[in-house]
Design a binder for these strands. Structure first.
Lengths: 104, 104
DNA sequence: TCTATATTTCTAGTAATATAGAAACATGGA
DNA sequence: TCCATGTTTCTATATTACTAGAAATATAGA
């Protein structure tokens, strides 16, 4: 649901973490790396990553002792598209092109 | 601030009102019209429109007894751009073009 | 000036969310 | 098997946000 995705992003720690993941792209980031750059306790970050995951904005993949988080760009595109959908009743507007792998 | 804009949109009544305003485009909508389509009490909608206004996402203009609300598309574009800024560290990505009057 | 209409502000009760300490869990390596 | 590392879950407290009734404000028209 769109409200859930927006709620997930509407919080400072989560927005910063998400933006870091957007920049990281397909490589993703571990909680440890994000903790280091944001300076929040590991359990606090874990709570917020869980929220992002629950909202469908990021994915998890365990690799050894680490868990790699990545942005789900399809979900992100869907969110951005939703906000502009049917803008100005479709008049005088150019439809936003669909992108599948990345928002850029 | 981006978190404030996202918080403003991260609530069902506000998201619905905002989307209606996006569709309405430059014409905008009155609270009365939005109340009618969403079916919420006028004071509740007023509270939420104030939040959207405070977040800089919409503008107000009094016309006679009515107040016309309109999306501030520049703010909306800035918000969408922020989320994709520096995506994938800029590699293999096409920069999103800047639009000034409308998000479409 | 009086009344109707449109919208906002005040208020209080209820619910949801953020934070971080402590403990638990999972994995890899000695 | 035992320990170190990385991450999550449990828990409690504090803060913030949603809702809607009632009252107040602003404008237009008779």
């Amino acid at each position: 649901m769109v409200v859930n995705a927006l709620s997930a992003l509407a919080q400072s720690v989560r927005l910063q973490a998400f933006r870091a993941l957007v920049v990281a792209g397909a490589a993703g980031l571990t909680p440890g790396a994000i903790v280091e750059s944001l300076g929040v306790p590991a359990n606090t970050l874990s709570f917020h990553l869980k929220e992002l995951n629950f909202a469908g904005l990021v994915t998890q993949q365990r690799i050894g002792r680490n868990i790699v988080y990545r942005v789900d760009f399809n979900q992100m595109n869907a969110l951005l598209s939703y906000l502009t959908e049917n803008c100005c009743a479709g008049a005088a507007c150019v439809v936003v092109s669909q992108r599948t792998d990345c928002v850029c």
